[in-house]
Structure formats: structure tokens, C-alpha cells
Write a protein that binds this DNA or RNA. Structure first.
Length: 216
DNA sequence: CTCCCGATAT
DNA sequence: ATATCAGGAG
């Protein structure tokens, strides 16, 4: 049973959302890109790697291979070398090339704007698809759940699950659809700056009074 | 579940 | 030395 005194989980989520908007008013996607294909590629590269690191390799990468056609026809070894420092470089290079080939042959050289189509691309699952849909096309198909969104949503007591798909479903029930992507963006900012994986800075956290995990 | 993997912080 | 970083595939 729920008590009337303590705010519901949804009320708490909405309060957290409002505070995040004030804390990080200018939060945007921190990956650098200039086309949907480049966003897709940068997002594939961001797996288990900082966005800062991705942004160090993409200028040379997109200078050499700016679009789906050039990436589809790239020499794989050269592609691997260009993305090497992001880690998992063999899988990433292979997936980027295979995805670009599929975009060229099956999607008329345009990155799909539907979840079902995006998930057909090698190396693309819900996290990457949600990022592309939100930032390339302005479509909030779901909530992007990356390592930060997972960790903070758990610490904030907004989900008890560990699987990204279940966390996403919990968050979609708690948050208004227009805020789905800005929620993820701002949680990521907060995760990087304050609610860090190793040593969360609860004493400096503006959400501490709303957080069941806070040690403040 | 394991594997993929380099760069950086702790 | 070890944990972590806008994950995904087998």
C-alpha cells in the first residue's frame, strides 16, 4: 500500500526531471556529427567508451569517409585503424561497414526513422536506435538506457530491474513522452559530473533529498 | 552467460 | 591493479 505523505514514484520522477532541467539547461547530445549517418556511426563507436574519446576520432574518420557510401566501400583495415582508440575496434568497424552497406542497399542510402528498421542494422540495438531517432529525427520512440541512465535510475529508486529493456519500460511509464530523451541526456550529464559509478558525490548532489541511495 | 578492447581515473 | 566508459552479438 502507498502512503499519502510520501510522494509517489511518478511524482518523484517528475520532480527529478524538473531539477535536472534547471541544473543542466543547455544539455544536448555530446557526440559531434553533421548527418544522421554520422550520428549513427558516432553512437556505435560510443559503446563502452567516452563521448570525449569518440569526438577525438570522428573528425579524421568523417574527413576520410563522410557518408554511408564511402563507409560501405572503405578498406576495413583502414576503418579499423581510424576507430581503434575507441576500443572493440574490430566489431565496431565491421558493424559500421555492414550497417552502411545495408543502408545503401536496403534503405535507399537513408538512415531509417523507424525502430523496427533500425534494429535490423548490425551493431544497432535499442540504445543506439533511440539515440538516432531522438537526435536525428526528433522522435521519442523510447528512453535511451545507457550505463549512466541505468545506474542513476536504479540509485534513484525508479526501477528495480537490471535489464535495460525493463528499465526503459519503467521509465516510459514514469515520464511524459516529450521528455524521454532529455531525461536521458541530463541523467548522463549528472552521472558524469556527480553521480559517478565509483564514488558518487552525494554531498554535492542537488537530488540527494529525492534519492533513497544518497548518503548525505 | 562470455566475448569484444583501448584510454583514463582511482 | 582494477574499474569504468552514451553496448551489442553469439
Amino acid at each position: 500500500m502507498t502512503t499519502r505523505k510520501s510522494p509517489s514514484k511518478k511524482q518523484r520522477a517528475l520532480e527529478i526531471l524538473q531539477r535536472l532541467k534547471h541544473l543542466y539547461p543547455d544539455a544536448t547530445c555530446s557526440l559531434n556529427y553533421s548527418t544522421p549517418v554520422q550520428l549513427l556511426v558516432a553512437t556505435i563507436l560510443s559503446a563502452q567508451c567516452t563521448d570525449e574519446r569518440v569526438n577525438k576520432v570522428t573528425p579524421a574518420l568523417f574527413g576520410r569517409f563522410p557518408d554511408a557510401a564511402s563507409l560501405a566501400n572503405a578498406d576495413l583495415e583502414e576503418l579499423e585503424n581510424l576507430v581503434r582508440s575507441t576500443g572493440f575496434y574490430r566489431n565496431k568497424a565491421k558493424n559500421i561497414q555492414a550497417a552502411c552497406r545495408m543502408i545503401a542497399t536496403e534503405f535507399d542510402s537513408v538512415v531509417p526513422n523507424q525502430m523496427e528498421q533500425l534494429l535490423k542494422l548490425p551493431g544497432v540495438a535499442r540504445k543506439t536506435a533511440n539515440v538516432v531517432l531522438a537526435h536525428a529525427y526528433g522522435i521519442n520512440a523510447g528512453v535511451t538506457v545507457d550505463t549512466h541512465v541505468k545506474r542513476l535510475s536504479q540509485r534513484l529508486g525508479l526501477t528495480k530491474h537490471a535489464e535495460p529493456i525493463k528499465i526503459e519500460q519503467d521509465l516510459m511509464k514514469l515520464l511524459p513522452q516529450p521528455d524521454w530523451e532529455n531525461w536521458s541526456i541530463r541523467l548522463i550529464y549528472h552521472g558524469r559530473a556527480i553521480c559517478k559509478a565509483r564514488s558518487p558525490a552525494c554531498s554535492a548532489c542537488e537530488l540527494a533529498d529525492l534519492c533513497p541511495t544518497s548518503d548525505k
